[in-house]
Design a protein around this nucleic acid. Structure first.
Length: 448
RNA sequence: GACCCCAUGGUGUAGUGGUCAGCACUCCACCCUUUCACGGUGGCAGCACGGGUUCGAAUCCCGUUGGGGUCGCCA
C-alpha cells in the first residue's frame, strides 16, 4: 500500500465512548479534521471501546452528535445509522479482537513478547528512543530502565498500547495528531511498531487545554463537556472558531474567521508547544459576534430549535415572519441561545408577568396615566412601524412637556414586564399594533 | 520523586537578532444612547529570573525558578 504518502495523509480521531465529548477531545478532532481537509487527506473516526464496562450505545451517540454539531464529518468509520464507511473496518475496537490476536501471536512468535502469569508482556527494548514530533521536535527518551508492559490482560482482553498501534498500522494512519498527554506513551508505541517491522506514523502532539486554574481540564471540571455549550445555546461555528484559537493562530491580528479560511491556513508546524487555558469570556464574546452578524436565515434554524427545546413554541407554530422579526431585534442584544430564549419569552406570550417592584416603579397611577396619554396616539399610528412610532412618541412628549424616556421605559415594562429588552420602537413594530394595544389595554384599563 | 513538555500583560496570541513589544478578550473612564447590547475614544497591565553569545537580544545557548503532563492488566 502506498496510501501513506505525504501527499495524502490519513489521520484519525479515536475517542473512547465515555458518555460525553471533552472539549480537549473536540479540539483534537478539529485539528485532525483541519489537517485532513487542508491536505486533501482522509479523516477517520475510530471508536476505542475496549473497556466494555463503560461503553453504552448512548455514549456512542453522544460522540456522533457532538462531532456532527461541530461540523466535523469523517471519511471512514461508523455512522450514526449503523452503517460503516471505509475499507479498513471494523472501526470499533471491540470488533477487532481477531486482528489483535494475530498481532499478539506474531509478537510472541518473534519473541518480542512473552506470557507471564497469564498476561502477555511486551519486551521493551532497553535503549534510547527518539520521538520525532512535528510540533515539539525530536524528543529523546532514555528507555534503558523501562519495564516490560502488559499488552494483553490475563482475561484475554487487549491493552490500549497494543490496539492503538495495531489499528494505526492496519488503518494506514500516516499522522497521529493527539494530545500531549500521550507523549510519554509514544516511545512504547514506536517500540511496538519497530518490533513489528513497521515504520511508525508521524507524530504531532498538541498542547493541552487547561481549565482556568491551570491544570489539565478534566471530566470533573465544569465546562469540560461539549454538550454543555450546546445546551447553553452556543453556535457551533462560534464554538469551533474559539477552539481553533487554542494553540493555533491565523495571525494577521484577526480572531474571527470562517472554517474555510482555517482549512486553507492550517499548518501542523505552526501549532504551539505551550498549553492554553480555556477562557469562557472569550468564547462568549465570539459567540455574541456570530449571533449578531451571521445571516438571519442562518441563525433562524438554531433559534427555532432553542425555542422548541425551551417549550416556547411547538411544532405547529407557523408565524415565521413574526418569529424572524423578533429574533432579529433580540439577537442584537444577547450572546447565547439561552439568553435569546429568555428575551424572546415576553414577546411570544401575551401572559405578561409583572413583579411588584417593577409595577411600583413604572406602573403606579402616575405611570399608568402617562401611558393612557399615549394610548390613543398609538392607536392612530400608521403604518405601525419603528420610524412612525418614534415620531409619534417624540412629538407626544414634546406636546406634553415630558421626556421621551417617560413613555419609553413604561411602555417596555407594560408590554413585556421587564425593564430591559430590545430597542422599543422596533419591538413595537415587531409585536404589531394589535398585540401592543391588547397588552396595554389589559394592564391600563382592566386591572382595577 | 523520576522522565518529558512548556514559559510575551489576568487570558488567548503576533513577534524568529535592531519594533515606542502589536492585536483580541477581560477590567476601568469617557462618548453614543430609551433599557440592554453594539459601536467609538482613551487607559491599566507583559517579554519569569540569572548567566552567557553578539555591536545589539522577547527572539540563540546554559542554568535556576515556575507551570503542566506521564509514570495502570484506563484509554
Amino acid at each position: 500500500m502506498t496510501s501513506t504518502t505525504p501527499s495524502h495523509p490519513r489521520v484519525r480521531f479515536a475517542p473512547s465512548p465515555t458518555g460525553y465529548l471533552h472539549v480537549g477531545g473536540a479540539r483534537t478532532a478539529l485539528f485532525n479534521w483541519l489537517y485532513a481537509r487542508h491536505t486533501n487527506g482522509t479523516f477517520i473516526l475510530r471508536i476505542e471501546d475496549t473497556d466494555a464496562s463503560r461503553n453504552t450505545p448512548q455514549a456512542l451517540s453522544v460522540i456522533f452528535e457532538n462531532l456532527r454539531w461541530l461540523g466535523l464529518d469523517w471519511d471512514e468509520g461508523p455512522l450514526p445509522d449503523g452503517r460503516t464507511i471505509g475499507p479498513f473496518g471494523p472501526y470499533f475496537q471491540s470488533q477487532r479482537k481477531d486482528i489483535y490476536e494475530a498481532y499478539c501471536k506474531k509478537l510472541i512468535d518473534k519473541e518480542m513478547a512473552y506470557i507471564k502469569e497469564g498476561a502477555v508482556l511486551f519486551r521493551m527494548p532497553r535503549k534510547r528512543i527518539i520521538v520525532p514530533d512535528i510540533i515539539c521536535g525530536d524528543i529523546y527518551f532514555d528507555c534503558t530502565l523501562e519495564k516490560d508492559f502488559v499488552i494483553r490482560r490475563k482475561d484475554g482482553s487487549f491493552v490500549f498500547h497494543l490496539v492503538n498501534v495495531v489499528d494505526d498500522c492496519e488503518m494506514k494512519i500516516s499522522h497521529v495528531i493527539r494530545g500531549e498527554d500521550h507523549l510519554s506513551n509514544t516511545p512504547k508505541h514506536i517500540a511496538i511498531f519497530e518490533s513489528l517491522g513497521i515504520k511508525p506514523p508521524l507524530y504531532a502532539h498538541i498542547p493541552l487545554i487547561l481549565n482556568p486554574e491551570g491544570s489539565k481540564m478534566s471530566k470533573r471540571d465544569k465546562g469540560s463537556s461539549v454538550q454543555e455549550y450546546i445546551d447553553e445555546g452556543y453556535l457551533p461555528k462560534a464554538f469551533r472558531n474559539y477552539l481553533c484559537l487554542l494553540g493555533w493562530s491565523i495571525k494577521e491580528n484577526r480572531e474571527i474567521f470562517d472554517i474555510e479560511e482555517a482549512i486553507a491556513k492550517f499548518d501542523l508546524t505552526q501549532i504551539h508547544r505551550s498549553n492554553a487555558r480555556f477562557n469562557r469570556q472569550k468564547l462568549l464574546w465570539i459567540n455574541g459576534e456570530y449571533m449578531r452578524t451571521m445571516p438571519l436565515d442562518e441563525l433562524f434554524p438554531h433559534a427555532l430549535s432553542w425555542l422548541k427545546k425551551a417549550g416556547l413554541i411547538d411544532d405547529h407554530y407557523d408565524n415565521i415572519p413574526f418569529l424572524k422579526g423578533a429574533i432579529a431585534i433580540v439577537r442584537e442584544k444577547v450572546k447565547t441561545g439561552k439568553e435569546l430564549i429568555d428575551w424572546m419569552k415576553p414577546l411570544l406570550s401575551d401572559q405578561i408577568e409583572y413583579n411588584e417592584a417593577v409595577l411600583q416603579q413604572y406602573l403606579d397611577n402616575e405611570g399608568k396615566n402617562i401611558l393612557k396619554e399615549a394610548f390613543p396616539y398609538l392607536e392612530k399610528v400608521s403604518p405601525f412601524q419603528a420610524k412612525e412610532l418614534e415620531e409619534t412618541i417624540k412629538s407626544l412628549a414634546m406636546k406634553n412637556g415630558r421626556k421621551t424616556a417617560d413613555y419609553i421605559h413604561r411602555l417596555r415594562v407594560a408590554l413585556t414586564g421587564r425593564t430591559v429588552g430590545p430597542s422599543l420602537y422596533p419591538m413595537l413594530e415587531v409585536l404589531g399594533k394589535e398585540k401592543v394595544l391588547y397588552r396595554l389595554h389589559k394592564v391600563l384599563f382592566e386591572h382595577e
